[in-house]
Computed example of a mutant assay.
Amino acid sequence: LDGDIDGARVEVARSDHGSAVLTDGLAEAGAYVHETVLYALTRPAGAGDSTELAAAGDLDAALFTSSLTVEHWLAAARERGIESAAREGLADATVGAIGPPTAETAADHGISVDVVPDDAGFEALARATIEDA
């Protein structure tokens, strides 16, 4: 969009944990960017069954759809006292990330990502991860 949006007013409506990649890129291209937070992302109580599957060696694939899902997954494993075993199980599974920012967060946390689809949508992520697995 560089060169096409200089001076444009852009509204970005999203969650409270959106990456700055989009808003910074739009601003750098010359747009006036306003962000509206529509919803908050929280981890439901009791979530994290996949951490137990990973710790037991029974997880074939994991799909991370945001940086926050990476952090929540690790927090759930930590709270269960199985973080080390869950990380080992995750290393044996196929790991997909919805886009480069999510893959970078995973890498920052020591998680190796096998799949990052060209299209940052869930269907593309699921299909690419299944194909790789």
Results as ranks from 00 to 15, higher is better:
Leu22Arg: 07
Glu35His: 11
Ala126Phe: 02
Asp114Ala: 11
Val12Phe: 01
Glu104Thr: 15
Glu83Cys: 02
Ala62Arg: 03
Leu22Ala: 10
Gly3Ile: 11
Ala54Phe: 04
Gly18Thr: 05
Ala55Asn: 02
Ala54Leu: 06
Ala40Lys: 11
Glu52Met: 07
Gly48Met: 04
Glu79Thr: 08
Leu26Asn: 07
Leu22Gly: 08
Val115Thr: 15
Gly89Cys: 03
Gly89Asp: 01
Glu131Leu: 04
Ala45Arg: 07
Glu35Cys: 07
Val95Pro: 09
Val37Leu: 06
Val70Arg: 09
Leu63Gln: 06
Thr102Ser: 10
Glu71Pro: 03
Ala55His: 05
Ile82Phe: 13
Ala29Leu: 01
Glu52Arg: 13
Ile82Asp: 07
Ser19Met: 05
Ser84Asn: 12
Gly7Pro: 01
His109Pro: 01
Ala103Arg: 03
Val115Asp: 04
Trp73Ile: 10
Ala86Val: 14
Ser84Tyr: 12
Phe122Val: 01
His17Ser: 04
Glu131Lys: 04
Leu90Asn: 08
Thr105His: 03
Ala47Ile: 11
Ala31Met: 08
Tyr39Ala: 07
Asp4Glu: 10
Ala55Gly: 05
Ala47Leu: 14
Gly99Trp: 03
Ser15Thr: 07
Val12Trp: 00
Ala103Ile: 07
Thr36Ser: 03
Arg127Leu: 07
Asp49Thr: 13
Arg127Met: 07
Glu104Val: 12
Val37Gly: 01
Gly57Gln: 09
Val33Gln: 05
Ala126Asn: 00
Ile98Phe: 11
Glu131Thr: 14
Thr102Phe: 08
Leu53Phe: 10
His109Arg: 13
Leu125Lys: 11
Asp60Tyr: 07
Ile5Ser: 09
Gly3His: 13
Ala47Asn: 05
His72Ile: 04
Val115Ile: 12
Trp73Lys: 03
Ile82Tyr: 14
Leu41His: 11
Asp24Val: 00
Val115Gly: 06
Glu11Gln: 00
Asp24Gly: 06
Gly57Thr: 11
Gly89Tyr: 02
Leu63Trp: 13
Gly30Met: 05
Asp119Gln: 09
Asp24Arg: 04
Leu68Gln: 15
Gly25Arg: 13
Ala40Phe: 14
Ser50Asp: 09
Ala106Gln: 12
Thr129Ala: 02
Gly7Trp: 02
Asp6Thr: 14
Pro100Thr: 13
Thr129Asn: 03
Leu59Trp: 08
Gly48Glu: 02
